[in-house]
Simulated assay, not measured.
Amino acid sequence: MEGLLDLGRQDMDPSRRSVLGVGLFSVALTIPHWPDVIGRMEAAHKGHVRRIGMADVRAVAAMTERISDLDDQFGGRTARPMAAAFLVNTAAPYLRAEAPDGVRKAMMGAVSDLCYLTGYMAVDEGLHGLAQRYYLKALELAGAAEDHLTFCTTLRGMSVQAVDLGHGAEAMRLADAAAAASPQAGPRMRAFLAGQQAHAAAQTGARGAALTYLKEAEVAMEKAESQSKAFGSYDPSSLLYHASQVRFELGDVAGSIAAMRESDKVRQSVYRRARVRHRCTLAERQLDLGHLEAACATWNLALEDYPSLQSGRADERIEVMHSRIKPYLKNPVARDLFERARGVTPVGLLPR
């Protein structure tokens, strides 16, 4: 596991290492029944843990879930230092401890999920090479743990990274690999995978395949929603986002706007970063059709949440907003938006 430790150490900003003793454990203490677990984590950090059990696996899973919540609400720059510190000081040492085979596999699966999340947050900061290293480590651990869920989720995450960078063929290959790795997927997982296949296919210009995958995702989502309302997983808002992306890639800007607006209406409030990014994307497409004031209204909605985020992807969309709105400053609505945005945008992101 030295490679994992090296990766995590490289990712830790030395100036932020105090997060282990303050921010990280402050987060942990908010989890019910965790005060007794903190001592175990500190012992792992000091190298005193010799044997682990399922309680330690649950501790890693619970911390990963809490960091994921913080990432959704505040962005990768806020949460990733916590994840890197936790990975180096607690999770990786657990992998070296003695454990029954079942516990060892479960711990590898839990740490795999943490690596995937840390890679996802690196993508949010635009650190794509670092993200890929985390993703590859997640695949390695998930394979060793026989954790099919995290394995195919990570492949799908790599496809999302590729499609967002415009590498459609690679995104398609990874999306197909994710689907092949989970042949017995339930309906929500199938929707999760098929939605990404649809987006990747659309980017490659494979219209028929894109629409077929999108329909498959819609049917699977309908079945999943009839069975349970799974909080925190792929949901109707996510599927509508994929529908919007497919329509946009296929040249249907108006259809992409309609789907993105529906996605925004049903998105759960905890997903603040997604709300900012997707509202900005919606505004850009509204402006593409010449709907200046509608675009300004949507960008104003995005600005309500933007100051709370530390997210490279959100920053990119705000930078685009500044450049797109600048030619329209004679319009009073556009001028008001521009002035409001200047007040909440970091100086380094403002146009020169």
Rank of each mutant, 00 (worst) to 15 (best):
P187L: 08
R77T: 01
L4P: 05
E262D: 14
N89P: 00
Q227I: 05
L149A: 11
L117Q: 15
S226P: 00
S311V: 00
L337Y: 06
E170R: 13
A198V: 03
E170A: 02
D6M: 06
R275S: 14
P93I: 03
V60D: 09
K229F: 02
G21Q: 11
P187G: 04
F231Q: 14
D336Y: 03
L301F: 00
C280E: 09
A55H: 09
H128F: 11
M108N: 07
P32E: 13
I67G: 01
A200I: 00
R324L: 11
T281Q: 14
I52L: 09
R51Y: 10
M12S: 07
G290F: 05
T154Y: 11
L239G: 04
M1C: 03
Y306E: 10
H167Y: 07
R104E: 12
T78F: 13
F74H: 15
A220D: 13
Y271K: 13
D71T: 01
K46Y: 08
E293K: 11
T90E: 11
H167D: 12
R17E: 13
A79H: 08
T153Y: 14
E140G: 01
A175M: 03
V219L: 14
V266M: 09
Q196N: 09
A43N: 11
A138D: 10
L309Q: 09
A201V: 02
D13W: 07
R188I: 04
M12E: 14
G166W: 07
S15A: 15
W34Q: 09
V344E: 11
A180I: 01
A254V: 01
G126Y: 08
V22M: 05
L141T: 03
V246M: 08
G186M: 08
F248K: 12
R190G: 00
M108F: 01
D124A: 02
P187I: 05
H322I: 01
L301Q: 15
W299P: 03
M189R: 15
P93C: 06
H167F: 04
A297R: 14
K215C: 00
A258P: 00
A302I: 00
F248C: 02
P35I: 00
A84W: 13
V88W: 06
F231Y: 12
L303H: 07
S18N: 12
V163T: 02
